[in-house]
């Protein structure tokens, strides 16, 4: 049985080591609004913030170019930094970039590496808990939206999406729809209907 749990609500009367949960007196409680599947013992957050993990791809905006570093806005509790000597070319304040997480340092700053400037287009901010749904199993959802709308897209695990070219408005609409309906079954079909199927099979 699946049920929605809210912060502080008991998920299981046994101690389970789950993300987005804590154990007290051998019982497990949720910390964010989540769906709990008690057969699979799986807790899926419906809301939540982004926690940086090594090698994850993020999308952000250069906030400031300093002597040896760039600071990056990430739509997250933490700022990103890029050490200038690891970048191939100079970047400017306001540049949109894609980069990967190298580490989270002690001061709560996300050290980024391999930055790439994303030219043109625009960014969308979505709830980080919905990023996985937007990407879909082996990129299916993302491919569907980007091919159906003729856009190029990059999805940062921090909940920032970059889109360029094609029908940007339709693509944005589809992204927000995935965010709003992430937990409702039949989403793939609805998005399919909205943006068109990427591969048209002739009968």
């Amino acid at each position: 049985m699946k049920r929605i749990v809210v912060p502080g609500e008991m998920v299981d009367d046994k101690p389970l080591h789950l993300l987005d949960a804590f154990i007290e007196e051998n019982k497990t409680y949720a910390t964010v609004i989540s769906v709990y599947d008690d057969e699979k013992k799986m807790l899926t957050p419906l809301e939540g913030l982004w926690y940086p993990r090594k090698e994850e791809v993020v999308v952000g905006v250069i906030e400031e170019a300093k002597l040896n570093t760039y600071t990056v806005q990430l739509n997250a509790p933490y700022k990103g930094i890029i050490i200038s000597k690891y970048t191939e070319s100079a970047m400017n304040t306001g540049d949109m970039i894609e980069a990967s997480v190298k580490e989270l340092d002690k001061t709560g700053t996300v050290v980024l590496s391999r930055p790439r400037v994303l030219n043109g287009g625009k960014l969308l901010k979505i709830r980080p808990a919905k990023v996985h749904r937007l990407i879909g199993k082996s990129n299916t959802m993302l491919n569907q939206i980007s091919q159906g709308t003729g856009t190029t897209m990059k999805v940062g695990m921090n909940g920032v999406v970059w889109i360029r070219g094609g029908d940007i408005d339709l693509a944005s609409e589809a992204v927000f729809r995935v965010q709003e309906e992430a937990h409702v079954s039949g989403l793939t079909e609805r998005i399919n209907k909205m943006v068109g199927s990427p591969v048209q099979v002739q009968k």
Binding site: V6, P7, G8, E9, D20, F22, Y29, T31, V32, I33, P45, E47, G48, L49, R127, P128, A129
Partner: peptide
């Protein structure tokens, strides 16, 4: 607070 996704031990 709960809707913002900030983790809490209670409501």
């Amino acid at each position: 607070m709960a809707l913002s996704g900030i983790p809490m031990k209670d409501l």
